[in-house]
Design a protein around this nucleic acid. Structure first.
Lengths: 149, 149
DNA sequence: GCCCTATCATTTGAACTTCAAACATTCGAG
DNA sequence: CTCGAATGTTTGAAGTTCAAATGATAGGGC
């Protein structure tokens, strides 16, 4: 691999990994007794549209089994971040709803992401930003086509 | 966040996690009884320069505590992928050396990364690749300056 | 209405990863 | 030589995840 290729590899592999750590460090004071994993579960709960906040849908969004999510949500419920509600129309379904502490955490979490994106857009010259976006689109599409196959 | 910003966020956050899954799926048949975590430990062991293969240095590279690495290396040693050698010059130090099975795994692992980079370079038009590389450099530098602060 | 299957969720036991703290050994400066 | 620093190991606990077993409900076909 040449220099540019090593750069691409490093970004693809390490940057994203390290961003998670930076995120954790940045949010440390805001998330209290939550792990980053729990923060991202809260993110999914807050972001879910009406009727899309069932265990099965959330688990698919988060790419874990429903069993794993049950364990996680049980903890978050105990900690007072979410509540569960049996669906009235289909009593097999469980809807997960955020409580105020979850909304508060998600506010900080969203703010971090906004700052992160701002960091990119402010770092790359405007005339080059279009090319970057286009490239990222292409890369994103490529890998997601791969994954589906 | 507008459309482009959402794209940046998505790439920065999700692509990494998904790449790790794609990597795992791709290498599945090659890595036998190893987890991806173990593959990346083997990568660090194989990539370490002479005298940089001690527990402390490897742990720093992998961003885990030395205690964690001890546990992991112990397993890899039992599985026959690495061996440990006490340093002669400094008997506190332990050098970790790859055995043939580790070299074999690392070969497949490196090949995957090469294909991944190839995917990017072949997806993005040549004239736009320069801009992409330059942008990635800027982004990379930005976040790593952040982290040190 | 009654079965049978599919769907949705929970529980449980096991595996993996990680860390902090306690401990042991060795080195090196004074 | 002595003592603090550096290097690793061990251990116990916590977090995450999954597969498999289980329970409950829904819905179609009879």
């Amino acid at each position: 691999m040449n220099h540019s290729e090593i750069m691409i590899d490093r970004v693809l592999v390490h940057l994203f990994n390290d961003l998670l750590r930076i995120e954790e460090k940045t949010l440390q004071k805001k998330i209290g007794d939550l792990s980053m994993r729990e923060v991202h579960i809260i993110e999914a709960v807050c972001a879910s549209q009406k009727e899309d906040n069932t265990m099965t849908v959330l688990a698919a969004t988060l790419r874990v089994t429903v069993g794993s999510l049950t364990v996680a949500i049980k903890t978050l419920e105990r900690k007072g971040y979410v509540i569960r509600q049996r669906s009235q129309s289909d009593k097999r379904r469980v809807h997960v709803l955020p409580l105020p502490p979850a909304l508060e955490v998600e506010k900080h979490h969203r703010a971090f992401h906004a700052r992160m994106v701002e960091a990119v857009t402010s770092t790359v010259p405007p005339q080059e930003l279009d090319v970057l976006i286009k490239s990222l689109h292409a890369i994103y599409d490529y890998f997601y086509d791969q994954e589906e196959a």
